[in-house]
Design a protein around this nucleic acid. Structure first.
Lengths: 194, 194
DNA sequence: AAAAAACTGTGACAAAAGTCACAGTCTAAA
DNA sequence: TTTAGACTGTGACTTTTGTCACAGTTTTTT
């Protein structure tokens, strides 16, 4: 179970991960299973953990006063589910995070992760690269939201994250793109016909 | 001139900045002045520098086939103008970055900055915090683009970055919000009247 | 195996935002 | 101080996207 995590870390770093470092990591990550729709985080809570997804899929979303869900992020294997802002600033989250599929995750507390990063050079290298990737991905999405139409954003997502489109139902993808399910259905049908 | 930069670094870190570290920093940052509309980066170039803005304002944008400018980011004093993705991945940028106002900036090459970060603990602390802030800011904008209407996004920007609204003309703000200038004009006039 | 829930498609209409055209104001340069 | 360019507002119209309603299909649960 921890193999996936160690393999993941290794894929990010040129520093070796030593045996006792691996032991240390395993001590601070705890395996947690989420059933479908089970919450990892609820609105109003301060997020203190990050969840490494070994198997499964999760989503992060807000619920408006009208009860509409707006999906901000989707997470699958080898991704980290967490409300970054809440974790870092210790502020109550405005998001829900729950399991879309039955999910196995390895949870680590923020303080423990900090400790590990300060102790293990490979993890410092990892977190810096991960942060860079987060920024690049986020910038791309912002750029897409400004430059592209709903249709173009869908085809962009198809290119950048085809795994999402295969894995999540259309109404989830629509919400993630900031459009509604009917609009996405029509975008798709326009192109099936040609 | 370098005072602003050193003060800025100090504001981010609990580690002291030593005299010889300051000397080292100054050696790698070079003062550059940009006239209005002068480019720091053009589409197709690989971005190898980051620009710390001492005084002035810059913008990052794409130009569509139709010649429309889509503004992705705005930068003012104490911000860093740079195409993060191009710098990190060494890929040609899809963006232009130019000076909106007459701007004084301190430029540093990516490789030099890496060297400084590896040598000066205060700068490692700084870059980690800055990356965190980038992620938090970017996530907020993504969230806003999905959850909020054009009008709500404008008022959100008014709350989170009032300095932008005072400093840049409306059509720039409109572009930054992903709407067109007429729409923003109407949003504003609706609220002036009440 | 049946029932319930979740998911998708589509028509009719509504609302939001974009486009085009033009006028008026403000600012900066000659 | 005049002139050009940049900026803002607004009306008329178009396009895109959203809303509502309902039907049909697929998946999950009992």
């Amino acid at each position: 179970m921890y193999d996936a995590l160690i393999r993941y870390f290794r894929s990010y770093t040129s520093n070796a991960l030593l045996g006792d470092e691996i032991d240390l990591i395993q001590r601070f990550f705890s395996l947690t299973k989420f059933k479908k729709r089970e919450f990892f985080l609820q609105e109003g809570e301060v997020c203190t953990y990050s969840a490494f997804i070994v198997k499964g899929a999760m989503r992060q979303y807000t619920v408006s006063e009208k009860g509409e869900e707006h999906i901000i992020k989707l997470f699958i294997e080898n991704w980290w589910a967490s409300d970054y802002e809440s974790v870092l600033k210790k502020t109550p989250s405005i998001y829900f995070i729950d399991a879309w599929e039955e999910t196995d995750a390895l949870l680590v507390a923020k303080t423990d992760l900090m400790y590990l990063i300060n102790r293990i050079p490979a993890l410092l290298e990892w977190i810096r690269k991960l942060d860079n990737n987060f920024v690049i991905d986020a910038d791309r999405r912002i750029s897409a939201s400004i430059r592209l139409s709903a249709e173009e954003r869908y085809f962009d997502l198809e290119k950048t994250h085809p795994e999402f489109i295969q894995r999540f139902p259309q109404h989830i993808i629509a919400s993630y793109l900031g459009i509604n399910r009917e609009t996405l259905s029509r975008i798709r049908s326009r192109y099936v016909k040609r």
